[in-house]
Design a protein around this nucleic acid. Structure first.
Lengths: 144, 144
DNA sequence: GCGCATAGTGGGTAAAGGTGGGTAATTGCG
DNA sequence: CGCAATTACCCACCTTTACCCACTATGCGC
């Protein structure tokens, strides 16, 4: 499973290195090499899926009535942006301009494991959302 | 079980020695050698879990609705930061920069046993929270 | 008090992970 | 159909991490 947090730099060509440990998980747990990258509709970040997980998501969508407004919106934002990327020999992928600007990634990118997918954030956006999340949890009664 | 308080120094490479007694507990009570280290969302410290305890935590999270805001925040802060570390031959682990800065650990680190997990604090932060905790207990009616 | 065992610290070296950049192939557009 | 811009692929470098060895400090038993 994808876990841990890594920071890698995007170069001038728009390439970023996928953390080696994530590539390992992809290889060993899924026996795949390429990933599907799409917008995350609820956060200003991108989400990367192994093919198997992506298919599971598609199946879930497919099970819903296709005239549902939420489903339509989801298709428009997420499905439309999704694309498969194969890392190059150095383990990097080229993130297209549209996705880059959606997530606001300029240079420093954070990869955050999220069990069966992982998120890609701009470093400063990540920090902000991290402090926000921490503040939310601060006064909570967590029983776990 | 993990108990007691130990202070060890982090070297320039970011490595700290896990107290031998904690490694013993890990070995004898859990039959494991590596630990999962993650942020503690409610304190400015890190928390180390034996795999078994970590799995228990994941199961608890998994049992909750995944669209719950608290659960999401928890995943972001804790799960994303979690990583497994195997101590080297000397019993040390390398704490990554992001976790180090979260806990504010510069040099001196305090390891505090907490039954089935243990906490890792910056020494001065530990002192502060210790006095705060003592002050809190001062006027309480403790029946234990 | 001395010596041994164990815990903790410092540092060198080889491998792996990550970064920068050049050139060939491809795409898209006039 | 040709040119410019983008993308794919490859090579080489640098930084970080993993692994190993040796040393120091501390505590315990004799």
């Amino acid at each position: 499973m994808f876990q841990g947090e890594y920071t890698n730099n995007m170069d001038e060509k728009g390439r970023v290195n996928i953390p080696a440990s994530f590539r390992d998980v992809l290889q060993k747990s899924y026996n795949e090499t390429s990933i599907i990258v799409a917008r995350d509709p609820q956060n200003m970040c991108l989400r990367a899926y192994p093919q198997r997980e992506w298919r599971r998501l598609l199946a879930k969508i497919g099970a819903r009535p296709s005239n549902d407004r939420i489903v339509q919106a989801f298709k428009r934002t997420v499905i439309s942006s999704a694309q498969e990327y194969a890392p190059d020999k150095q383990g990097r992928v080229l993130i297209p301009q549209s996705l880059r600007s959606y997530a606001g990634i300029s240079k420093s990118a954070v990869f955050a494991g999220s069990v069966d997918t992982f998120e890609i954030w701009d470093a400063t956006a990540w920090d902000e959302q991290l402090t926000a999340s921490l503040a939310l949890l601060q006064n909570q009664d967590l029983d776990f």
